[in-house]
Design a protein around this nucleic acid. Structure first.
Lengths: 239, 239
DNA sequence: CGCGTTCTTGACTGCTTTCAAAGATGGTGG
DNA sequence: CCACCATCTTTGAAAGCAGTCAAGAACGCG
């Protein structure tokens, strides 16, 4: 079971990601497998955690995309970051955490209680460092890139993050989001996101069909936005 | 341009801030006082840490302002966040940390090696959670607020953060920065920052003299931007 | 097949940038 | 003490990127 070919299972992405972050021991594998047995789902658009709410149960995301967001009183929305398969929700290193942001399911989710263990603790610390890195990048993206560049930079980040859990190749990955949600991520309007996507398509820099994005020339995109991969991982994200 | 260096003792702001974060025991006080003895200064504009460099010595900032930033290949700069007196530099919970961002002195700095201790470890964890919260707020600010609103929101945050270390009152605090640096923080040009500042002054919402800002009507400003204070506090709700 | 959601398009507005240059400010040395 | 210089702030005119409003097309789902 632990050797030989593993069949695709519900926690495959999480397993792949945790293995990429730390030397993943037998205990860790068993703990994850155990946790996956009590996995549960969450329908799209459901709010997982409200701003100011007490964090109950740290969980690991097995499948689907969740979003961290700030909702303004006047209806404006800003998506602060994403939580992708293999990443953690409600994991705080300090006592008595209150959720600083709202977390919502962007697609249907598959979740499990975060398994515990020595190797896993290390993986969670690294995961947290990565999350912080993505926040820094998001700030730079919003503050100093044009709409066109933001789109490119964001696509590259999603590719790299999904690749860690084996859900992306160097030039192809799923993006299960509306242009409206993308606009709320990139600080734009959905109309403008639409226009920039079309421009990228016309230029042959992206091809998308059925919620899957293909990047014919990733190197060109990386150059366009001075893209720099995260420095945190144990192994390279893209093979 | 100097802040915090003229206090009764060099580590006053840090002491005040750490006390605000945790129940601060005798051991902690002594450790801080000891650390303060080996404090050192750093001239304005000096780079403390370069992106990708290995983090050497976790430090606590005793006085002055530092900035975390991303420098683009084409010269664009985005300030990702600030490090204010009592806050930490190079403090990472995981092994083998590489600096994800460049950190630069915005003013002359007074620094000390971060003292160790049980209570202090708790304070550092809380401080880290607060830092993350500021990142979230910065993202929302850049993504969904107008130039005018960004300025207001940022001023309120600086007030609150400086207040934790006793360096601000509810309506008055130092801002030792050029409009250029402020522009690189808020994702604007210095010209536009200048115009918005003048507008705020004309409206009587801010008064500034000699690098000190006064907010005649903070409540009005908070309402303007749907401002919400950080939820991270010392008093554990239930624990 | 029908309906709601999402995507696409066009015309117009406007916030923010760009470019350029003139004041103000502060520190330094004669 | 004042001249001088670099840096920072202020101002104006023009251009451009992104937003707004509105409506039609395409898509997915029951």
């Amino acid at each position: 079971m632990l050797t030989g070919l593993a069949l695709p299972s519900a926690h495959d992405a999480a397993l792949t990601r945790l293995s990429a972050l730390v030397e993943f021991d037998i205990d860790g594998r068993l703990a994850l497998e155990q946790a996956a047995k009590s996995r549960f789902t969450c329908p799209a658009l459901r709010e997982l955690l409200g701003e100011g709410q007490r964090v109950v149960q740290p969980s690991i995301l097995l499948g689907g995309w969740a979003g961290r967001m700030r909702l303004f009183a006047d209806g404006r929305r800003q998506i602060l970051g994403f939580i992708l398969p293999g990443e953690l929700i409600g994991f705080c290193p300090h006592r008595d955490p209150l959720a600083a942001t709202t977390i919502t399911a962007l697609t249907e989710l598959s979740l499990a209680p975060a398994p515990e263990g020595d190797a896993l603790a290390g993986a969670y610390a690294l995961s947290h460092a990565l999350e912080e890195f993505y926040l820094f990048r998001h700030i730079a993206r919003l503050g100093r890139l044009s709409a066109y560049e933001r789109l490119v930079d964001w696509l590259l980040e999603m590719r790299d993050r999904l690749a860690i859990s084996g859900l992306a190749t160097a030039d192809r990955f799923p993006v299960p989001m509306t242009q409206e949600a993308l606009a709320d991520t990139l600080g734009l309007t959905s109309v403008h996101v639409n226009r920039m996507l079309q421009l990228l398509r016309r230029e042959g820099l992206i091809v998308s069909r059925g919620g899957v994005v293909h990047l014919p020339d990733p190197a060109r995109l990386e150059e366009l936005v001075d893209y720099r991969p995260a420095l945190v991982t144990r192994t390279p994200g893209i093979a």
